[in-house]
Design a protein around this nucleic acid. Sequence first.
DNA 1: TTCGAAAGTTTAGTCATTGCACTTATTTTG
DNA 2: CAAAATAAGTGCAATGACTAAACTTTCGAA
Lengths: 197, 197
Amino acid sequence: MTEPTGRRERKKAQTRQSLADAALELFLERGYDQVGVKDVADAADVSVTTLFKHFPSKEALVFDQDDDLEAALVAAVRDRTPGQSIPQALREHILLKQTQFAVHTTDPRFADFTRMVQETPALRDYAHRMWTRHEAALARAITEAAGAPEDDISCAALARFALEARGLVLRHAEPNRAADEAFALLEHGWAASRPGS
Amino acid sequence: MTEPTGRRERKKAQTRQSLADAALELFLERGYDQVGVKDVADAADVSVTTLFKHFPSKEALVFDQDDDLEAALVAAVRDRTPGQSIPQALREHILLKQTQFAVHTTDPRFADFTRMVQETPALRDYAHRMWTRHEAALARAITEAAGAPEDDISCAALARFALEARGLVLRHAEPNRAADEAFALLEHGWAASRPGS
DNA sequence: TTCGAAAGTTTAGTCATTGCACTTATTTTG
DNA sequence: CAAAATAAGTGCAATGACTAAACTTTCGAA
């Protein structure tokens, strides 16, 4: 009963996939701004209207799998291994997400993809929004995990900084080292702001 | 010779001002998304194309004075009072900018203005971009001031976090306290990452 | 005074995105 | 199984931000 998929839903999923595939191919080939939604729709052999029934915007065509980032983020903080600090847990989670992502896409074009995202303002901003959208939830999780008062600012700050650190890490040649240093800064600042661990 | 302003340039400046004024008034009255660029152009009695000759985008109508944020930011780090830490200098500079801004606008509608910016996604994002645009320059200034190697990640991280802190501070009821806590976190993290002050 | 450049206008167009009315395929239900 | 309900997909027109091109007016400098 986990897949009560009728023919209808299958076709829908297929159309969606065609669109995402066509979009990725065209964008990588010609560049995001050089491709219109019309081109993508044509390549997937559907109408433009249909495209927008599947994806809320042109940018969304690029970031297909938008699953439960938020839940995972909150869980990373709540269920961290005992003794591990919150900044450390976040560092691990963010690096994990990256490698998962890189592995999941078996395409050797993965490097081209990330480069394209970083070099296209519309996409960079969209990706940024996707992350920061969960800032409030992360802040709440941190507040709870730290047993801090409701509106503690350090917790909100840590949430935002940690999410921002991702962008910093992404564009560096050596992600692991970048993450280590950026989160070391947060780690020490956090420990100092919070006398009782 | 500081103002060799001919009639021509005066008229140009006047047109620009009319546009900015009309835009602000209409936006505050009806809300940003409820006003089209056509409405603004009409209210200023110019054509839409003229509007775009003065402002590169609809959002730019709102943030008229975009002077030398970057130079000021870099100077705040380079010329900080001796003995003051870099995070402290940045905290002061950011709070200063805010109050300067608030005073400069004698309008009692100032509160409405900031509320509107925070509540309109397009404007929030634009303001954010205006700040983060100078991240690279700030990072370079910090690197120099700290005597760190060219690509030191802690410096880049501090630059980004400090700029992000502004958004955090802005939405809080008590900006000073928020700034104190957010920058305290950076202060301690920075000191720890940097053995020799 | 004349001539070029700058400000402004009109017009027409691109591009993402939405609303509406319509067809077609697949379920669901009586 | 035969409707009747549901949902995918289509075409078309429109909005709203923005741009390019060709043209007119107005300064300002030579």
